[in-house]
Nucleic acid binder design. Structure first.
Lengths: 190, 190
DNA sequence: CTGTCCATGTAAGGCGTTACATGATTGT
DNA sequence: ACAATCATGTAACGCCTTACATGGACAG
């Protein structure tokens, strides 16, 4: 379960509450590992049982209590073990591609609507990623660990590159559908 | 549920048994929508309940019976409706990127092993896709519906392009880690 | 005084995977 | 003889989502 290890990863930097963890996910790895609140709390309970984290109840005057989670030594060992262990091949599911695959059932207008809608969505995502990337460039100088910082931003670069590829694919597909040119291209040009 | 509609898609071409459907998935959309056997049988039962398919029990001498599934008129309408309906934004999960994100915990040798392993896996996948693409080029001339054939191959082109992007990303990442160069690049070059 | 943020959880449901179960036919 | 292919299912489990439930503090 990757969520467990992602949580361990965050806790290896600093102790956090369930609430803080949710924010940490949303602000950093959301684009490749969204996590919802209820899932985080449940997983935290499992991590406790496994002894990979410890809970500290911080009682605050005039505020609700916070449950701070600390990574344990066995937790750090487990995180390291997982990080250096090959993952089983993942499968990939993309319902949009099912729509494309059976797109022969649609007429040209419907098909182009489908493709252009996706094109717009990807363009918007790319614009967002570009903004985040620039923010990261700005704060790079202040990062304590340049190497770790670089690796975290690498995942954003992945998002940018793969969305650029998807956009190029879509733009090309739209052009071919518009032209009614259904011949396959040369592999080298893909 | 996309699996339902993928099944309807296949049945819109020809009536098939659960067993045949499993083969159809494995031979065509597996790279973006793997389906396993038990799931197909369960989903077929749901499609029956919904009246989108009909079951015909084909009794064969000296062979086990086959349950052939036919798409109904309401099934065709539903398929068309789904194909032309925008999908809610999908979330994307890639555990490998979690390993990269927290890769600062690994030393250079471990990190490079992680990245190179993924690089090899992607190269192998690309080689496989290239072979399948060439097979499709060869059979293109014999396809009855050129447009529908083109759209089905488009999903393969997507697979090729996105894996090429992932490969370029990895190759570049490996180079930067080897050089110990952790500065961020210019966005235009991504 | 209304909404947002802080903060923690439970319950039910959906979709998918793995393992189990059965049995005939065809190929090596 | 043994494995693979044909053919259909059930049971249990895992991970994730959505909705529900609660309640104080603070800002506009």
């Amino acid at each position: 379960m990757s969520l467990k290890h992602a949580i361990l990863g965050f806790l290896s930097f600093q102790s956090l509450s369930g609430y803080d963890l949710k924010k940490a996910f949303d602000q950093s790895v959301q684009h490749f590992w969204p996590a919802n609140q209820s899932q985080i709390y449940r997983t935290l309970a499992e991590l406790l049982e496994q002894g990979w984290v410890e809970q500290e109840v911080v009682v605050r005057e005039e505020r609700l209590d916070v449950k701070l989670y600390h990574i344990t030594e066995t937790g750090r060992i487990e995180l390291h073990r997982w990080l250096s262990t090959p993952l089983p091949p993942q499968d990939f599911r993309e319902p949009f591609l099912i729509q494309v695959y059976f797109g022969g059932k649609l007429d040209d207008a419907e098909l182009l609507r489908l493709l252009r809608r996706e094109q717009t969505a990807i363009e918007e995502r790319l614009a967002l990623y570009a903004t985040i990337y620039r923010m990261n460039q700005a704060k790079q100088a202040t990062a304590q660990d340049q190497r770790a910082f670089f690796l975290s931003v690498l995942t954003l670069e992945y998002g940018i590159r793969s969305n650029q590829a998807a956009l190029a694919w879509l733009t090309n597909a739209i052009k071919r559908v518009e032209a009614g040119n259904f011949t396959l291209t040369d592999l080298i040009h893909l």
